[in-house]
Amino acid sequence: MKSKIVLFIIGFLVWALLTWPLDLQHLIAGLIVAAFIAFITGDLFSQRPHHFGHITRYLWFSYYVPVFLWECLKANIDVAMRVLNPKLPINPGIVKVKTTLKSDTGLTFLANSITLTPGTLCVDIDAEKGILYIHWIDVKTQDIDKATELIVSNFEKILKKIFE
């Protein structure tokens, strides 16, 4: 039941932003549509809906967004320099890293942030053993622990506070 209410609020918010100049007719139509969607598919939305009530999670999320955007900008400049260099300085390979996150949402966000940071692309996830396979454009080390230290640990500390 809590999950349905959360989905209803999110759906209504997105509808209100899509039809921006707020208007009574649009709001009533959005109310009906959001209630219908929440009634049908509400239970699939979240396994642990009580997490939406914790305020510290939102504070950690607002700390996560600037870190993520800064890494994203660095990644773009890094790729642009590699592409424009006449010698094409790449040294690619697929390495393995470990993670301690368990929840599905946390793993998805971890894979997304790894994909948008400098030189790394997530290829596959083994959720039971907690192993990610990562394509790295400039392989610095093949050891699991050192690669984990270099790639994952920066984001894992923040994401653990948000989603676990």
Binding site: V79, I94, L121
Partner: peptide, 15 residues
């Protein structure tokens, strides 16, 4: 410019 599928995917999906 880049040589194989994975490197191309890196460049396009970021930039």
């Amino acid at each position: 410019r880049l040589p194989d599928v994975y490197n191309r995917l890196q460049a396009t999906t970021k930039c």
